[in-house]
């Protein structure tokens, strides 16, 4: 049952279509185990953003304040999405990674589990 409504043909208006985001898409990012700051964040980015640009330009704006961030060895980071592990290519875009509007990516830094074990 998609909805209980008085009118059988009722459907709500979906407000968050990509066409409303001025040429960008939303990307959700979560830094696992970092409960002090790593809860999933939402950013608007172009679908043409490369994974390299994401790591170099977008992630520092979100996480640089966390003391673990500068210790990350990006070659060892484990990436995943809801579909399972993701092996990113720095030169390929979000679109080429099939990370579409409102997709979520997560990254795990196995040797770093939060400052003073505080997340």
């Amino acid at each position: 049952m998609p909805i209980k409504s008085i009118r059988p043909d009722y459907r709500g208006e979906y407000k968050d279509g990509i066409e409303h985001f001025n040429g960008q898409q939303l990307l959700n990012i979560c830094w696992e185990k970092h409960t002090m700051l790593g809860w999933p964040m939402c950013v608007p980015v172009p679908a043409t953003l490369t994974f390299g640009q994401l790591i170099d330009n977008v992630l520092p704006g979100i996480y640089a304040i966390h003391p673990d961030f500068e210790k990350i060895d990006w070659d060892k980071v484990q990436w995943s999405t809801s579909k399972g592990p993701l092996i990113p290519n720095r030169n390929k875009s979000l679109r080429e990674h099939e990370l579409r509007h409102k997709a979520q990516i997560r990254f795990r830094t196995p040797e770093l589990n939060g400052h003073n074990n505080g997340g």
Partner: peptide, 16 residues
């Protein structure tokens, strides 16, 4: 220490 991740698709769109 592990965040909850739950997502679904409806009409081709992603929801969290």
């Amino acid at each position: 220490t592990e965040f909850v991740h739950r997502e679904t698709e409806f009409d081709g769109e992603i929801f969290h």
